[in-house]
C-alpha cells in the first residue's frame, strides 16, 4: 500500500493536450469545478430566501 502511495506521489500525473495547449488532468478538474460552482451560485436559490424581497 505504502509503495503504491509512494509511486503515485512520484508520478507526473495525466496530461491532456490539444495542439500547443497542455494541461494536467487535476488542474483541469479544479478549473471546471470552479466554473461549475460559479454558475450554480448564480442560478440556485439560496435556502431561506424564498418569499423575501
Amino acid at each position: 500500500m505504502n509503495t503504491l502511495l509512494l509511486a503515485m506521489g512520484d508520478s507526473p500525473g495525466i496530461y491532456l493536450g490539444w495542439g500547443v495547449f497542455t494541461i494536467q488532468l487535476g488542474n483541469l478538474i479544479i478549473i471546471l469545478t470552479m466554473l461549475a460552482l460559479f454558475g450554480l451560485a448564480l442560478v440556485l436559490p439560496f435556502p431561506g430566501s424564498g418569499g423575501r424581497k
Binding site: 460559479f38 451560485a41 448564480l42 440556485l44 439560496f46 431561506g48 430566501s49 423575501r52 424581497k53
Partner: peptide, 11 residues
C-alpha cells in the same frame, strides 16, 4: 441586506 441571501456571497 437582502441581496446577501445568494450563494455567490458564500465563497
Amino acid at each position: 441586506p437582502s441581496y446577501v441571501a445568494s450563494w455567490i456571497y458564500v465563497f
